[in-house]
Write a protein that binds this DNA or RNA. Structure first.
Lengths: 264, 264
DNA sequence: TAATATTGTGTCGAAATGATATAATAGATA
DNA sequence: TATCTATTATATCATTTCGACACAATATTA
């Protein structure tokens, strides 16, 4: 992270190019060690974390802005990314955030003029649209933005303290993920291209938060028909080797049409 | 609709109190004559229709703004209202809209100053959040806003020409309605307090767009357990009288927790 | 070759589903 | 009053699905 003083100048020049009052925040899910994780940023000088987010350029669509944020933080493009809720309460700010702005400002030592522009921008009321992304954690390379020191995967079951309403945003994202899983085979995106049935089951269990019966899970998933079976995985373990599967996106498209929900 | 000149002055004074760049649009569903309908506004002097929408006051939450729009157009409060998508493409304007602004301006004959403020406001890029509402059509009293001449229920199967992307917004709302119906007994809100089983079935058929089998529908719906059975409806017809049912909101709350979707 | 751990598939009773049949009944008709 | 008609409520039944569990298959170790 090069010269912070120059960063603040860049930011000051960018601000007029942003749509005022609207931001995007990305809940980027990953899956590792049988745990569902979220990519979080740690703000400089503060023991507080935040979702990767950003602003929308005046000549950029909101979806593109979210895509850009995702790519900047993970290096990944063209993966599952979908808006799930827009947060428009009045009190979308808190004391810790104001505290943070002060510290940032002190750190940056910008000119009076620049300082005012930047403070005004961040103190404004923002409506934010939440996106959730599903990534293969092994393909992503987390990168902090210029406001942050660290960019790390954190387990959803033990989240650190988060700014403003970001904990609520993550909660909502997880709820949506569960619901979407109920009518779409969405979770696949979190796994590498080839995976075993038990990998998939553990993932579903992590998302749904409850154990599933092994043989019945296999029966149901296979019946949905969006998995292709490949060669076996010889892991070296002293037991029967599991088949590898991959995701058949053609079948998935068909399912998208019908859904797999409750039928009246 | 009183003096239009004074209306434009009111608008000019309101504009500084709105959050810039963000609006809400309500897809207000009703159900009548076995058809799903949407409440639309007809703009003055133009053969084009629009969703009821509005802007968000700086000291108002986005949800409250949507609630306000709904109440202003229907006289109804505290009914089902939920955001379903936020539309953030760049090209959220079209020629017919610009045409419309010109006509409105000509009609209003505002001062140069007022004119500039109002034109600038409407020509700005807006991100809009779509809400869908479910109303008992017989309780609502449609009221045009000051920009519109008419406020009418239109069948979703034969929609008139709509401004900008409002046709797409309605499409999305209907899609969401179908999906939500798949895991929540949501449609109830469209019926009067007491209704027969065949009323409910016709409503579900209208939303889902396909016929359902009568006896099985009854069995399944009753098993979900959120209906209370009441006295029979003596319509005077020469046949067995159907029971009347009402919606049990306590049971509904329980269902909200579990959902009724696909289970892995 | 036997033992072990894990996977793939089969089984079985219970429940849900779709299709259809039957019984109940409010009024009309004779 | 008895019968007929239209519609509703419920029963039936073969088929499918579900959850729980059994059992066979198999890659490696002992």
């Amino acid at each position: 992270m090069a010269d912070i003083e120059s960063q603040i100048k860049i930011l000051k020049d960018l601000i007029p190019k942003f749509l005022p009052g609207h931001s995007v925040d990305c809940v980027i899910f990953g899956y590792e060690d049988k745990e569902l994780k979220v990519l979080l940023l740690n703000w400089k000088q503060m023991d507080i974390w935040a979702l990767p987010g950003g602003f929308i350029f005046k000549d950029e669509s909101m979806d593109d802005a979210a895509q850009r944020v995702l790519e900047e933080r993970t290096g990944l493009s063209s993966i599952f990314l979908k808006q799930f809720h827009t947060f428009g309460k009045i009190q979308r700010s808190d004391h810790s955030q104001q505290e943070h702005h002060k510290k940032i400002m002190a750190l940056m030592k910008p000119s009076k003029q620049d300082r005012k522009i930047v403070i005004d921008w961040f103190d404004h009321r923002f409506i934010t649209t939440g996106y959730f992304a599903l990534t293969d954690i092994r393909k992503a390379t987390p990168r902090p933005d210029f406001l942050s020191e660290k960019c790390e995967w954190k387990s959803v079951s033990e989240l650190p303290e988060l700014i403003i309403d970001h904990a609520e945003i993550i909660q909502q994202a997880m709820h949506q993920l569960k619901i979407q899983l109920n009518y779409l085979p969405i979770g696949i995106s979190l796994l590498p291209e080839k995976f075993t049935m038990i990998d998939l089951q553990k993932l579903y269990e992590a998302i749904l938060g409850r154990p599933l019966e092994r043989s019945n899970f296999q029966r149901k998933i296979l019946k949905l028909g969006f998995l292709d079976r490949h060669e076996k995985l010889m892991s070296g373990a002293a037991n029967k080797a599991p088949y590898l599967y991959s995701f058949n996106s053609t079948k998935y498209e068909e399912l998208l049409e019908e859904g797999i929900g409750f039928r009246y």
